[in-house]
Computed example of a mutant assay.
Amino acid sequence: MYLDTDLQNTTWTTEEAANAAGVTRDVIYQWRARGKIAPVNRRGWPRYRALDILRVEQATRQRAGRTHAAV
């Protein structure tokens, strides 16, 4: 996935968010349940702001002491 777009206005499906963060869809669901992310739409399948996903992924990686970033 290329990150050459405006991450503030780009939204991803659960699958796209999981792929971008290098996690499974279940992790995206857990982040949502824990209040770390929220969908930006009110109808249909949830879509998440790309910037929010990448921020949560980075914070999670730092807390875990991992040095590699999501691909």
Rank of each mutant, 00 (worst) to 15 (best):
Y48G: 01
R42H: 11
A21T: 06
A59L: 10
T24Q: 10
I53K: 03
N19T: 12
H68Y: 14
T14S: 08
M1D: 11
N41V: 03
D26Q: 14
G65H: 04
Q62I: 12
R61C: 07
Q8E: 15
Y2F: 13
T67F: 09
E16F: 08
V40C: 08
D6K: 08
T13G: 06
A18M: 02
I53Y: 02
V40K: 10
L51E: 11
A69D: 15
T14Y: 01
R49A: 08
R34F: 01
R47E: 10
A59D: 11
P46N: 03
E57W: 00
R25H: 08
L51W: 01
E16T: 11
L51R: 12
R43M: 13
R34L: 07
L3E: 09
A33T: 01
R49E: 07
T14V: 10
I28T: 01
P46V: 04
G35A: 02
R66H: 12
Y2A: 15
T5M: 13
P39T: 05
W31D: 01
R47K: 06
Q30N: 07
E15Q: 14
V40M: 09
I37R: 02
T5N: 13
D6E: 06
Q8N: 15
R55F: 00
A21I: 06
A70M: 07
Y48R: 03
W45S: 12
W12C: 07
A64W: 05
T13S: 06
A69H: 15
R63E: 12
G44T: 05
A18Y: 02
R32V: 02
L7C: 02
T60P: 00
W12E: 07
T67S: 12
G65Y: 04
I37A: 00
Y2M: 15
G44R: 01
P39E: 09
A69R: 15
P46L: 04
A50E: 06
K36G: 00
A17E: 00
Y2G: 15
A38M: 06
A33C: 01
D4S: 13
P39S: 08
W45N: 13
R61M: 06
T67V: 14
T14H: 02
A20M: 10
Y48T: 05
Y29A: 07
P46A: 05
A21D: 06
D6V: 06
I53L: 02
W31F: 01
Q62V: 13
Q62E: 14
Y48I: 05
R32H: 07
E57Q: 11
G44H: 04
G65D: 02
D4C: 11
H68I: 14
R32K: 10
A59Q: 11
L3K: 14
T13K: 06
R42I: 09
M1V: 14
A64D: 05
A20P: 04
V23I: 07
P46C: 01
K36V: 00
Q62C: 00
D6I: 06
I53E: 01
T67L: 12
T60G: 00
Y29C: 05
A50C: 10
T24K: 12
R66Q: 10
A70S: 14
R43K: 13
N9F: 11
T60F: 07
E15S: 14
A20I: 11
Q62S: 09
A33E: 12
R42V: 10
P39Q: 09
D4F: 10
R49H: 04
T5A: 14
V56T: 04
R32T: 07
I28F: 03
T11F: 08
